[in-house]
């Protein structure tokens, strides 16, 4: 017979460690945001690289993306923290540098695919129209393709942010004092598991909830400014009909 014996829940022990949790939140947020911002920039370069017709640009980008999407993030974190950084710099630069680097490189690979797909989803005629007006490829990309593609990229890029926030908990293996690490410390100190891990879960949930709200807001903003008729049709409908 299974007996579920809930011990009396004691959240006061969490309260005693509240500073550790608050610090954990900041570390998690910091790692996520740094990883995400550099991941978007990296993803943009890699994504465009994967669209290049030049083989010496295309293949490095492709292999990079294949590697970082094809290996576990946990392995990447360990490789970077324990092997790459000590080899290059001769010493560890701390969990934060390793963690941020691993998350950036990983996030860049995933974003590259989103950005590549977003750019490819724009009709071929748009690039042709830009080029036929004398725009070099880069100018057409900047003013014609990317503004349209970006709007389509917002939802998947938003998902990526949420995923990264949760995946950032893996840095706990290199003793980064992120949110999960705070839970582990409390669990270790009291040999109790319900309270610390439930707290950690709730705090992650809270963070992803806030991020989701922000992403929804950004999506709305962009769809408004780029599908302007939703705002404007009422005003110009009469003229439109008369003009046609």
């Amino acid at each position: 017979m299974i007996t579920i014996d809930f011990p009396d829940i004691r959240f006061d022990m969490i309260w005693n460690y509240k500073e550790l949790f608050i610090r954990g939140i900041w570390v998690t947020l910091g790692l996520t945001l740094i990883g995400y911002v550099s991941g978007v920039i990296l993803g943009l370069l890699l994504g465009m690289g994967k669209l290049s017709k030049k083989k010496w640009i295309y293949y490095p980008c492709k292999y990079y993306v294949d590697f970082f999407r094809g290996t576990p993030l946990l392995v990447q974190i360990l490789l970077i923290h324990l092997a790459l950084i000590p080899t290059v710099f001769g010493e560890s630069l701390g969990y934060f540098v390793s963690g941020a680097l691993a998350l950036s490189l990983n996030c860049g690979a995933y974003n590259a695919e989103i950005i590549r797909a977003g750019i490819q989803s724009i009709e071929k005629g748009q690039m042709e129209a830009g080029r036929s007006l004398g725009m070099p490829r880069g100018v057409a990309m900047r003013y014609v393709i990317l503004p349209q593609a970006f709007r389509r990229m917002v939802p998947p890029l938003g998902n990526e942010l949420i995923a990264l926030l949760k995946d950032s908990s893996l840095v706990t293996v290199i003793a980064a004092n992120d949110l999960l690490y705070a839970g582990k410390v409390v669990a270790g100190a009291y040999a109790r598991f319900w309270e610390p891990y439930i707290t950690v879960a709730i705090l992650y949930l809270l963070l992803t909830y806030i991020f989701t709200k922000v992403i929804t807001y950004v999506e709305k903003r962009f769809s408004n400014s780029y599908v302007p008729s939703q705002r404007r049709r009422i005003f110009s409908f009469g003229r439109s009909a008369a003009g046609g």
């Binding site: 009709e123 005629g125 748009q126 042709e128 129209a129 830009g130 080029r131 036929s132 007006l133 004398g134 014609v144 349209q148």
Partner: peptide
């Protein structure tokens, strides 16, 4: 291309 304008079947406006 600066000197050669082109108009497409599908308009291709931005």
């Amino acid at each position: 291309r600066k000197e050669v304008g082109m108009v497409f079947q599908q308009f291709n406006l931005f």
